[in-house]
Amino acid sequence: MTRNTLIRTLAAIGLAGGVAFSATAQADYPEQDIRLIIPYGPGGATDIIFRLISQEAEQHLGESIVPVNMAGAGATLGSRNVKDARPDGYTLLGSHDTIALSKLAGTVDYSYDAFEPIALLTQTINIPAAHANHPVQSADEIADYVRENPGQVRFSMIPSSTDHFFWVQFFDEAGIDMADVRLVGYPDTGEQVSALLAEEIDFAMFNLPSGGAFFEDGTFRPLGVAHPERLDGLPDVPTLREMGIEMDHSTSRGLFAPKGTPQEVLDTVAEAYGQALENEQVRSRIENEFGSVVRFLAGDDYRAFLDDNEAALSAAAENIDFQN
């Protein structure tokens, strides 16, 4: 055997061994704890929902799923950490529409396509709201109120976040000229809650995790539900569509992995979370406590959903000046 032939033979043996090792490693996945990066602080809807489902999903994986809160930089600190992690299935991201929103706002240079999508888990339905003393009783009265008070009506939002896009889409569907409203920016939901409590603003967008307690005690008034069906937690509040406003809007939470993560790993994680969402107690809490709906999509179905989601957000972004 010549020297070159020997080298080629050893290389082939090494390559085959590497492929076999990789296949074995994937077949045995997971063999250690999985870190789930949540790009928000503890206690919010995103944090609570991912922790709830992950606690059940780890029962099907046989290893612990460790939630790690990594807030900062408009939720991009956590997403960047996962984007740059090893694609071995042991660092995952639990996030939502903010991935695409950050790209559209120019905060980062990447979107959904920088990751391997694993599965869509839930959609939290968004709800326009007013303080209890406000004269507007329902969402279909907002347009008339704006026309009667041009330039004076204040809508709160977190710049470049879900509620920013919500209001832009709402104005379009309700026939409201953006030149007639005042969008007031706040750093987080807590600040918006305080502003509405103080009646410094007219309207805010919440959901049941962030506003449910205030709806229940009458401090805030839910003006409509941005979903095709009424919510079990707010059965007397009509949908926007019932009021003639053809709009649905939700925060869609799902799982992502670093680009290049093997498909077998993605499928294993997706299957575990899909099984977790079949648990009736988990589903009940998601639907009744968090005003969300279970919507499980994986593989090509989830990729198609993300494509449609980004296209809709891009269309709304055309009407947003991110510099102001």
Rank of each mutant, 00 (worst) to 15 (best):
T5S: 14
R221P: 00
T46V: 12
V181S: 09
E200L: 11
D88S: 05
P117V: 06
M178T: 15
S194M: 12
M1D: 11
Q275D: 11
E310H: 14
F165Q: 02
F322A: 12
R283A: 14
A130N: 07
G233K: 00
G14A: 15
G41N: 12
T98P: 01
N319M: 11
V269T: 03
I118Y: 08
S292G: 06
Q137M: 10
S102I: 05
T162W: 03
A272S: 08
T239S: 01
S194F: 09
A315F: 03
A315K: 14
H249S: 15
T9K: 10
A272T: 03
L266G: 02
F166W: 05
V82L: 11
N207M: 06
N81P: 00
G94C: 07
A198Q: 14
E310V: 07
S314Y: 03
K103Y: 15
I53D: 05
G44H: 08
Y302M: 05
A57H: 03
V225W: 00
F220I: 08
E242C: 04
A272Q: 04
E141P: 04
R303F: 05
Q169K: 14
S252F: 04
P228K: 06
G254L: 05
A257G: 08
E216H: 13
A20K: 00
G185N: 12
A71R: 10
G89N: 03
F305G: 06
T91V: 14
R221H: 02
V136L: 02
D140R: 11
F206C: 03
E116I: 07
G62E: 07
H227S: 14
R147D: 13
E116P: 02
A174M: 06
A20H: 00
R285M: 12
L255V: 05
D321Q: 10
V153Y: 04
A298M: 05
I34T: 10
T251N: 13
A174S: 12
G291Y: 02
V184I: 15
F322R: 10
S194T: 13
A213I: 06
R221Y: 00
F166P: 03
G94W: 05
V282F: 04
F290I: 01
A129C: 14
P39I: 07
Q192V: 11
G190T: 11
G254A: 06
V19N: 00
F21R: 00
L234N: 01
F220M: 11
V225T: 08
A304M: 10
A213L: 13
M1W: 08
L104R: 07
E310Y: 14
P117T: 05
G14L: 07
L101T: 09
L231F: 01
I53C: 09
G254N: 05
T5F: 10
R285Y: 03
A25Y: 00
L231E: 01
D202V: 09
S284W: 09
Y112T: 03
V68N: 08
I65H: 02
F115S: 02
F215M: 06
A213E: 14
D307L: 12
M247S: 08
L231D: 00
A100N: 10
G18L: 13
G106L: 09
E280Q: 15
Y112C: 02
D267M: 06
T2L: 09
L313M: 15
N319F: 12
L77T: 15
L208V: 15
T5E: 15
E289L: 12
V19Y: 00
Y90N: 07
